[in-house]
């Protein structure tokens, strides 16, 4: 057995949330700068310049890239031979989210009850997904998920006969509808297969990848590239005001599914699609 102190988990979670909120993924900053080469319209170029400049200012001044510092989504990969000492793992994660919120001057954006809607004041609780694996690996990945883009996400239970064409069309409809609300150029996570909730979870999980890193499966990598090209043909453009760059990346994950179904989930993320991870 390998032991990891709960305090270390707490401090790591706090650091990851601050880091993800203050520092734009360098791959996305590169993608924004490459996007400028494809845009000629002054409005589209100005918005891309604003977004790059915003990332530089956020890092320089220690301000969050975006005021919506998100609801805390945490993916834990926990080796079966790891023992968490000194407290419950989920409590350590909760305390890390609260510490990160305070130390990073992040916004408290979470309400205790979806109907009564009282702010919890420290961005807790998190949405936590655990994945148990053999061995003594312990990896923690965070996605501070903003709701301008989250609200534009969608899930549909397609029929097997709808096939790839149906999936493609649903992804394009969802990205087109997201428009300016998602702070484009957006990042699009797609989960196909499994059950309803598995498709949604894969779509979210895919957002952990960095722009420019394709799915390791060549067939899925080809489909991702096809989706990204098709999304960019939509013309939504930076800020939703028209242009050639509607998305900076599209990630696809799949899982075996039922003979009767073809679940598809599209998780829309903004240009800043924030994520960070650490291995302890």
């Amino acid at each position: 057995m390998r032991s990891i102190r709960a305090e270390l988990v707490r401090d790591t979670v706090a650091t990851l949330f601050v880091q993800a909120n203050l520092h734009l993924d360098p791959a996305l900053l590169d993608a924004l700068e490459r996007a400028l080469e494809n845009e000629t319209a002054p409005t589209a170029r100005d918005i891309l310049d604003d977004l790059s400049e915003n990332a530089r200012l956020a890092a320089r001044d220690g301000l969050p890239i975006c005021q919506d510092t998100g609801m805390a989504v945490v993916f834990v990969t926990l080796g079966q031979e790891v023992c968490i000492e000194g407290g419950a793992l989920s409590d350590a994660i909760r305390d890390g989210v609260a510490d990160g919120c305070r130390k990073g001057y992040l916004r408290a954006s979470v309400v205790r009850d979806p109907f009564l809607r009282q702010n919890t004041g420290d961005n807790t609780p998190a949405v936590i997904h655990y994945d148990l694996v053999p061995g003594d690996l312990f990896r923690i990945a965070v996605v501070p998920k903003g709701f301008g883009s989250e609200n534009m996400s969608a899930l549909r239970m397609l029929k097997p006969s709808d096939g790839w064409a149906g999936v493609r069309s649903f992804v394009l409809d969802t990205a087109a509808a997201a428009g300016a609300n998602a702070c484009p150029p957006m990042v699009v996570g797609v989960g196909v297969g499994g059950t309803m909730e598995k498709a949604a979870l894969m779509a979210k999980h895919s957002l952990l990848r960095s722009a420019g890193v394709p799915n390791p499966d060549p067939d899925l990598a080809r489909r991702e590239a096809e989706l990204l090209d098709a999304i960019n043909e939509l013309g939504v453009g930076p800020g939703g005001l028209g242009g050639h760059v509607t998305a900076l990346a599209c990630f696809l994950e799949t899982y075996p599914t039922h003979i009767a179904g073809l679940p598809v989930a599209v998780n829309i993320s903004c240009y800043a699609s924030r994520h960070a991870e650490a291995q302890l």
Binding site: I47, D50, L51, E53, N54, A55, L57, A58, D61, L63, P64, I65, C66, Q67, D68, G148, A180, N181, C183, G239, G240, C270, Y271, A272
Partner: peptide
């Protein structure tokens, strides 16, 4: 009016 979505640090300035 529209302000640039996602430019929270720039606009704070």
């Amino acid at each position: 009016f529209g302000a640039t979505g996602g430019a929270g640090a720039l606009l704070a300035g």
